[in-house]
C-alpha cells in the first residue's frame, strides 16, 4: 500500500517536473557566506573547493549551508576516501537537520581566473546529477581590497547543449549565435540571515564608526594587485595569439587544399576531354583515396572562447581597480590640500 503510494508520489513529482522556471536569484545564508570565506581565506593562495547545500525553490536557489572538501590529491585511494568523506559529511549534517540537498559547489580563485575547461567539466558532471546547479566563486585576493568578491555563475543552456554534443566548430557556434560572452552566466546573489542572527549581530556590532573593510578599501597601495593582474593579462594575450595562429594556420591549409583540389579537377577535366575526343569513358571527377580530399579537422573554438572570457575579465578588473584608484587619489589630493 505504502509502496504504491510512494510510487504515485514519485510519479506526481516526475510529472510536475516539466519546465523549470529559469534560475534568477541565488539566495545565500550568511552562514554559508562566512563558511566559504573562512575556508578560502584560510588556505589561500592554494585553491580549495567545497559543496553547497540548500533548496531549489522555483526561480530561487537557496544556499543554506556548505562544507569544505579536503585538498585533493592525485591518488585513487584518496579519491575514494574523498567520496566517503562527502557521504559521511552529508549523513552527519542531515542528522542535525541541515538541508542535505546538493545544489552545486564553491571554489576559490586567483584574480578571477576561474574560466577553465575544468570548471566546465565539473559543471557538466554536477548538472547531470542535479537539475539545477550553481557555482559560487570567491576571490580572496580581491577581498583584501575591501570588496566582497562573491560571484554565482552557471553555464548557459545553449552552451551546455553544444558541450554535450562536443561540437565547437565555427559553423555550429554561428548557427546557435553563441559568442564568447554567452558561455557563463552570472546570477545575482541575495543574502539572507535568520532573525536570530540578525539580532545577535546588531547587538554585537562594535560602536566604532570605522570597520576593517573601510581601511581595506582606502588603502592606497594597489600596485601589487595591478601588477599581478597585468601579468595574467599578458599571459592571456599570448595564449590568445597562439590560438589565433592555430586558426590562421587552419584557414591557410584549407585554402591551400582548395587550390590543390581545383588544380587536380582542372587536370582531370582536361584529361577527360582528351579521352572523350578519343572515344573513351571519362574518369570520375572525384577521387576519395587522394589525400588532398581529406577534410582537415577544425580546431576547437572552446579554448579561444575561454581565453577571451578571461581576458575580458582581467580588463574589467583593471578598469574597476583603476576607477577606485582615481577616487582614492582625488581623495588624497583633497586631504592634502586641506
Amino acid at each position: 500500500m505504502s509502496n504504491t503510494m510512494a510510487r504515485s508520489f514519485l510519479q506526481a513529482v516526475s510529472s510536475s517536473e516539466e519546465v523549470a522556471p529559469p534560475l534568477r536569484v541565488v539566495q545565500m545564508e550568511g552562514l554559508a557566506v562566512l563558511k566559504i570565506i573562512k575556508h578560502c581565506n584560510g588556505f589561500s593562495p592554494a585553491l580549495v573547493t567545497g559543496q553547497l547545500l540548500g533548496l531549489d525553490v522555483g526561480s530561487v536557489l537557496e544556499v543554506t549551508n556548505c562544507f569544505p572538501f579536503p585538498i585533493r590529491e592525485e591518488d585513487e585511494e584518496i579519491e575514494a576516501d574523498g567520496a566517503n568523506y562527502q557521504l559521511e559529511m552529508m549523513r552527519c549534517l542531515r542528522e542535525v537537520n541541515v538541508d542535505n540537498n546538493t545544489i552545486g559547489w564553491y571554489q576559490s580563485t586567483l584574480l578571477g581566473s576561474f574560466q577553465t575547461v575544468e570548471l566546465i567539466e565539473t559543471f557538466m558532471n554536477y548538472q547531470e546529477n542535479i537539475r539545477r546547479c550553481v557555482c559560487i566563486i570567491y576571490d580572496p585576493s580581491r577581498s583584501s581590497q575591501g570588496a566582497l568578491a562573491l560571484k554565482a555563475v552557471k553555464l548557459t543552456d545553449s552552451f551546455m547543449d553544444l558541450h554535450r554534443k562536443n561540437n565547437f566548430t565555427g559553423e555550429k557556434l554561428r548557427e546557435k549565435k553563441l559568442s564568447w560572452v554567452d558561455i557563463f552566466e552570472e546570477i545575482p546573489i541575495k543574502i539572507s540571515n535568520s532573525a536570530l542572527i540578525s539580532a545577535f549581530m546588531t547587538e554585537l556590532e562594535p560602536e566604532s564608526p570605522v570597520a576593517q573593510c573601510d581601511y581595506d578599501r582606502l588603502k592606497l597601495s594597489t600596485a601589487p594587485y595591478m601588477e599581478r593582474n597585468l601579468e595574467f593579462l599578458i599571459d592571456c594575450m599570448e595564449d590568445l595569439s597562439s590560438e589565433q595562429n592555430k586558426f590562421q594556420y587552419y584557414y591557410r591549409s584549407i585554402s591551400r587544399q582548395q587550390a590543390q583540389q581545383q588544380a587536380w579537377l582542372q587536370k582531370r577535366r582536361v584529361e577527360n576531354m582528351a579521352r572523350k575526343a578519343a572515344g573513351e569513358e571519362p574518369l570520375p571527377e572525384e577521387d576519395p583515396s587522394n589525400s588532398i580530399f581529406k577534410p582537415i579537422p577544425e580546431p576547437s573554438h572552446l579554448d579561444s572562447y575561454l581565453i577571451t572570457n578571461q581576458t575580458s575579465n582581467y580588463c574589467n578588473q583593471i578598469n574597476g581597480v583603476a576607477g577606485q584608484n582615481f577616487s582614492r587619489l582625488y581623495l588624497m589630493k583633497a586631504l592634502h590640500e586641506n
Binding site: 577581498s143 540578525s198 570597520a211 573593510c213 574597476g320 576607477g323
Partner: peptide, 27 residues
Amino acid sequence: ERVGFDILKTTVVDKLPNDLEGMEASM
C-alpha cells in the same frame, strides 16, 4: 567586519555592493 556588518545584520540583502559602491560608502 571585512565582510561588512551591513550584510550580516539584516535579514535580507537584495544585492551585494560592488567595488565602487563600497568605496562610496567608505568615503
